[in-house]
Design a protein around this nucleic acid. Structure first.
Lengths: 66, 66
DNA sequence: TCTATTTGTAAAGTTTGTTTTACTTTTGAA
DNA sequence: TTCAAAAGTAAAACAAACTTTACAAATAGA
């Protein structure tokens, strides 16, 4: 699964630390998600989408094999 | 977090086992998610939404405190 | 270039998701 | 009412998410 968190952060001028504190996770979690090291829970995905005023599908997308 | 998986299954006339095999998880996982015993990963949420031709936000919703 | 901020990364530890097996309860149709 | 299918549940084991601490690399502005 890929994601556009980095782009959304840029649009909203937020650092990884900003985003992390706003949704209540560690900065390393945001970094790991952004770098596709692991897949976040649905609660996190919903919170991130909400914060960026968009949808989960707009931020996270399945790849071919998934 | 709550979800409308049971309703969507009814609309699409699918059992928990049907849904589980279509998205590649165990039947118990679907049951546990449906009964709010745990929060699924974003990949699962995306797959479920896709299967039901709708969005993650239409199936999973954050509650007040989240 | 110097410095502060941001990002990337890593390891250890805790928590939570997911599977497997297996059994009980509910539901619905014959 | 009976029987089969579906749903609920539980425990053990394993996998993955997430935290914490800590440090190195990259970036950007003065």
């Amino acid at each position: 699964m890929k994601n556009s968190i980095k782009v959304q952060r840029a649009i909203h001028d937020m650092t990884q630390a900003d985003l992390a504190s706003k949704i209540g996770v560690s900065r390393q979690s945001i970094n790991a998600i952004e770098k596709n090291k692991y897949v976040p829970s649905t609660v996190l995905a919903l919170k991130i989408a909400k914060l960026f005023n968009t949808t989960v599908e707009d931020i996270f997308f399945l790849e071919e094999n998934e």
